[in-house]
Design a protein around this nucleic acid. Sequence first.
DNA 1: GTCTATATAGCGATAGAC
DNA 2: GTCTATCGCTATATAGAC
Lengths: 181, 181
Amino acid sequence: MARPPLARERVLDAYEQILVSEGERAATLEAVAKAAGVSKGGLLYHFAAKEDLSTGLLQRLDALVTEDVELMKQAPEGPIAYYVRTSVMEGDALDRAITAASRLAQGGQADAVVALREMRMLWETTLRPAVRDETALQLVMLLSDGLYYNNALDGTGDLSTPTPRDGALEKLIELVERTVT
Amino acid sequence: MARPPLARERVLDAYEQILVSEGERAATLEAVAKAAGVSKGGLLYHFAAKEDLSTGLLQRLDALVTEDVELMKQAPEGPIAYYVRTSVMEGDALDRAITAASRLAQGGQADAVVALREMRMLWETTLRPAVRDETALQLVMLLSDGLYYNNALDGTGDLSTPTPRDGALEKLIELVERTVT
DNA sequence: GTCTATATAGCGATAGAC
DNA sequence: GTCTATCGCTATATAGAC
């Protein structure tokens, strides 16, 4: 990992942020360069082609997912409650990476689809020992997918989304726990 | 409704299909025109600007959703089983329209986001009388969202998706019915 | 390592013939 | 109602100065 150049990370942050808030089409080299505070040429020194930008983003996603799975295994409230709770996005690094990857996947980028599928399978494997059977597992997985999808629909970060929060979220977690364990 | 021109419908079909299978970026006027079997000029006679294409698509979605809600109200198996079952995409007209609108929404198109939110609210209102409480309603809605999202991820129509089908789907519906009623 | 300048291609949209 | 030709703009990518 030996300390990647700062500018490189800033560019990747900018790319991710534009993908989330304005979509794939808006994430042009010029827009990303401007948001990162470099020139187009400067950007292309770090990422020779546009494809390298998405590759970098998917690698970052991978690392964050690995971390998250460890946290999930050790969560005091248990993996299910942890999983459902953290499926409501708070805008942290993992949330941003997932949403950005989702934009690329919907744009037809095959490697993004693969990365998201693998992420999902890793979660599935981690949750399996904590649920009653496969049907219960599917219910938890799909519910989480639904939470992510709803939040990802608008990247503007407004809170008028139909996502349950606070009290409603706690009740939902309770119901899910009762249903799947 | 007085019989819209055939070419117009063919163009709209082509636009929808490319959005679903290749994403927003691939749905250029030229690609749509070619798939519809007309020239760029011919396309632009029916849809003066590209925005009109997405408007036409969202109107089509609206009509299909209205039909579907009626079917859901009258479903012999009850609205919940109907809703969960039909959330697994079979590639019918409504499925295609929803996925296409989802691509536009993820591309940052505000009117597509609104159309999808309104669709969801209509479903929510229709299902409310059939469930125990608001928490149960949220569980059903989110599960359905998850099913749609998973299928929409790759528009290639392959069946290697993690979506439950046949036996697994029936068991899931059973579990959901038991949980929310 | 970052910049400006530029090449090349493809986009949405217009004009006008048929 | 559909076509071809073309305009103006913007996208990705390259070249070469600093």
